[in-house]
């Protein structure tokens, strides 16, 4: 177990360097640097522009800039935003709870709906329900988030007026930002309507962000269950006289969950990617929204640091998934 952990941790370092190299190079391929974006429209002189570039170090060769950045990151310093001059880490920590809240709700929604649907489809394979669900899940898995988000807003916010269009909580409600998680903060506020307001703001982004994972989880659960239901030990369980529910939930599902947990873990990457789009559509003040803005402003340190932090998170979750196998599957516990 320790060896396994060490090997996994050792793999994190090259991934770090790869991620920073990619984000470092890609953002510099986009025309215009932060100085130009900020001052370009004000018509400042070419000399002043060159001076500002020199101060920020953007006139050095790319490789030297990269080495300097890596050295800085290695010391645990992600730098400060070129635009706001706040520390990248500070901004990330302020905005991150909003993204976590949305992502956790989305994945819980996807699991809560997708897992049972997949199980039912497998148990009733070949039925109308099965075919219908699999058709829908192809649609769901290939749903473009920005379009899906706009459609949901059009129907539920604009036409029906059931939910707010954007943001995390109504302006009319004041909540002390204590944990950064709106649902928790609203729960501890005195305002009775706060939780309801936070929930109503959360529901559409959750559905939009959860759609793709839901479809993927439902499909994976179905195929995994189908395989397990054909195993000899399922026959043994039925030979004990167990009811269908107990056979499916106790004997089949636990075995079928092993590949499904992998898929759920892999969805975290998709989820954070989707969060960027979802946050933009719903003006959700999270990390995704922040990263998009950093691209528009060519805010190099924010984009690089933010990407690195998100990548770290994905790696940590995948490590957690690998550890969860041991819990589910006694055969690889040692």
């Amino acid at each position: 177990m320790i060896r396994f952990l060490l090997r996994r941790v050792a793999l994190i370092l090259p991934t770090f360097i790869g991620v920073t190299l990619l984000s470092f190079m890609l953002i510099r391929l986009v025309p215009g640097d932060p100085i130009e974006i900020r001052f370009g429209e004000r018509g400042i002189s070419a000399e002043r522009l060159a001076e500002l570039r020199h101060e920020a170090g953007f006139d050095r060769p790319l490789w030297r800039q990269f080495v300097a950045y890596e050295a800085q990151v290695a010391q645990g310093d992600l730098g400060t935003s070129v635009v706001t001059h706040d520390s990248v880490w500070g901004e990330f920590i302020t905005l991150f709870p909003a993204t976590i809240e949305l992502s956790v709700c989305a994945i819980l929604f996807a699991i809560a709906i997708g897992l049972p649907l997949g199980v039912i489809a497998a148990v009733r394979r070949g039925s109308v329900f099965d075919y219908g669900l699999m058709g829908l899940s192809v649609t769901g898995a290939s749903m473009p988030i920005f379009w899906w988000g706009l459609m949901m807003i059009l129907v539920f916010s604009v036409a029906l007026g059931w939910t707010p269009v954007s943001g995390r909580i109504s302006d009319a409600v004041y909540v002390v930002p204590w944990s950064g998680f709106m649902l928790i903060d609203a729960w501890y506020s005195d305002d009775a309507g706060a939780v309801r307001s936070a929930l109503s703001h959360l529901i559409l982004p959750t559905i939009v962000l959860g759609t793709i994972p839901l479809a993927t989880i439902a499909r994976m659960t179905r195929s995994s269950m189908l395989e397990v239901l054909g195993e000899d030990y399922i026959r043994t369980a039925r030979a004990k006289g167990l009811g269908t529910l107990r056979v499916v939930v106790v004997h089949a599902l636990r075995n079928a969950l092993i590949p499904v947990v992998t898929v759920i873990g892999l969805q975290v990457g998709t989820l954070l990617g989707g969060a960027i789009l979802t946050e933009t559509v719903f003006s959700w003040p999270g990390v995704g929204h922040w990263l998009i803005e950093s691209i528009q402003r060519r805010d190099y340190p924010v984009l690089q640091g933010g990407t690195l932090l998100v990548a770290t998170l994905v790696m940590l979750v995948n490590l957690g998934v690998d550890l969860a196998y041991g819990f589910l599957n006694p055969r690889i516990r040692r």
């Binding site: 000899d232 030990y233 026959r235 043994t236 030979a239 006289g241 055969r331």
Partner: peptide, 26 residues
Amino acid sequence: RRRRRLVGRDMAMIFQEPMSSLNPCY
């Protein structure tokens, strides 16, 4: 439901492959 009360209690069965006939998770 009534039949399952007989199966596993009054009539039982064992199978060919003991390795795959036991649930690996329990």
